[in-house]
Design a protein around this nucleic acid. Sequence first.
DNA 1: CCTTCCATTTGACAATTATCAATTTCCTCT
DNA 2: AGAGGAAATTGATAATTGTCAAATGGAAGG
Lengths: 236, 236
Amino acid sequence: MRPDEHPEIRQLSLFKNIAETSFAYLMRGAYLQTFPPKVDLILEGENCDFLYIVVEGGVELFSSWNGRSTTMSVVRPLSTFILAAAVKDAACLMSARTLKKTRLILLPAVDVRRVLETDVAFSHAVITELAECYRGLVTNTKNIKMRSSFERLAHYLLRRLAESNSECIVTLEIEKRQLASYLGMTPENLSRSIKKLEAHGVKTNGTQFEITDVDDLRKLVKPGHVIGEFKSSAQG
Amino acid sequence: MRPDEHPEIRQLSLFKNIAETSFAYLMRGAYLQTFPPKVDLILEGENCDFLYIVVEGGVELFSSWNGRSTTMSVVRPLSTFILAAAVKDAACLMSARTLKKTRLILLPAVDVRRVLETDVAFSHAVITELAECYRGLVTNTKNIKMRSSFERLAHYLLRRLAESNSECIVTLEIEKRQLASYLGMTPENLSRSIKKLEAHGVKTNGTQFEITDVDDLRKLVKPGHVIGEFKSSAQG
DNA sequence: CCTTCCATTTGACAATTATCAATTTCCTCT
DNA sequence: AGAGGAAATTGATAATTGTCAAATGGAAGG
């Protein structure tokens, strides 16, 4: 891939401060590839050969066991995923599939580990990234263990609202059954929870959510204090 | 603290390969301190001033929200905790308290970040450590989301059995209510689950568990394939 | 040795969440 | 536009998990 093909990825926190030669080295071995929707990219248990960058589209990280399956995270542009496995040269703990048509950059994990050895700035960026992924997951785990599914939905909406430009509109960017899986509930119960939200200042219409009474939602979520900062996603 | 006072900590993967001067620098600012049981060490939300090393005893990492509380991890000697917050100079996402009389080494987080800037070997060790913590938490999250509380208990026992020297004996090193919280269930339900285990090749006596039929347990846990590697704990 | 306290256990019950089946709605493809 | 298929919703029911209260047991301290 030509390094200048997607100049925006140079701005990723992982690459922003690394040496030009390091970046060029990484780009030399990089693929740019476009995948259709619902394509499996990674099967958990397999060794991790690439660090992935989502340039366009979206990728779902999920896990399956014994007939069950759960969405761990949804990765949007521009971000990387499966960094932890790539640097450790270890088996992936999550599977990955495209949500829709998706453009990805694949960096060979060997190259990543190689640059890690030579570029201190890259090491530091990886440390920061991993620490953020870890802390995102900590918040996630706290959510799952301490909040009910209804509260998790409310929390999710507030988080999305904080990320959005709008004062009161949140538009889901994933299907509801994937949201349900991410939140650790069934699609049926998500449906019922969404209905219950109407009693708490949220009007819904398909994938659109209008928060008419933020304070009411906040009463459910009780953010700020400790548990859930409004950012982070965790996709190491 | 005298660097030679606890030579074993030099063998921690975090410090094993760092320069002598780096290690000495870290030790120069280090405290060695002994705490009684049930002492609060960290309150989540507060900024993180130290990287902690458990030399003796045990520390519980937990989180509280809205009257609820959950054990996130139990840290045993010799390990560090709260690394992610320390390197990021960020607020702690978990609280910490001693389980029993505990001897800790406190490394000022500023010193840790300082050495990070100068010692490449330390950077690499931190990367590995953070990646492992992250992956531990991923496994944890998968457990909580895909297994029932009874299955989580069975999984926990097998994990502890794998760590132990014994062929068939597992001795709990934490109180049952803490185990319950760690596993995401109530003490009452843990009690009932332990009883249910007797039908699956486990004899119990207080904190002692004798696994008389490992295969039966394995049938419940279905390990190996993907979900749960038998190590890791996650205490970034 | 006894007392006291607290963890654990047990039982009854309630709340939450999942499952199954049947529609309905929405999206895509022709 | 219409048909087909998948997603979402709804209702009924079951399973899991949590809550409350009481009884038991074990460990620490006098």
